[in-house]
């Protein structure tokens, strides 16, 4: 599965498209990480725990989108966009969407 965030897949021809595909996941961090982050907020710097958590979640969202595209018979997704929002206290939603296409 080829995923791009431009209009095309360079060097390939888009022969058909299947409309919008999307993947999302909502993750909550556990209390331990919260406490560590609270401490880290005193001194600043990267919150490694959070970065890793969001990376994992984003990967899961991507996997879900790819899964959906496969079900439609696509072999590439173009013009992909990410969006992150916090749906509830302490939980973040990672959302990714794009257009499922078949390239040759």
């Amino acid at each position: 599965m080829i995923i791009t965030n431009i209009e095309t897949v360079p060097g390939k021809n888009i022969v058909e498209h299947f409309g919008l595909v999307s993947g999302s996941t909502i993750r909550a961090k556990h209390v331990g990480r919260d406490i560590m982050a609270g401490l880290k907020n005193l001194v600043g710097g990267e919150l490694k725990g959070y970065t890793q958590l969001l990376q994992e979640s984003r990967q899961q969202a991507l996997d879900r989108m790819v899964d959906q595209a496969r079900q439609l018979g696509a072999n590439a997704i173009v013009n992909v966009r990410f969006s992150t929002s916090s749906v509830a206290q302490g939980a973040a939603e990672l959302y990714v969407y794009g257009t499922a296409v078949r390239i040759e």
Binding site: E16, H17, R64, D67, Q71
Partner: peptide
């Protein structure tokens, strides 16, 4: 455009 619906809800 090939109209298709996914078989299952991945989300």
């Amino acid at each position: 455009y090939t109209p298709r619906l996914p078989k299952s809800n991945v989300n």
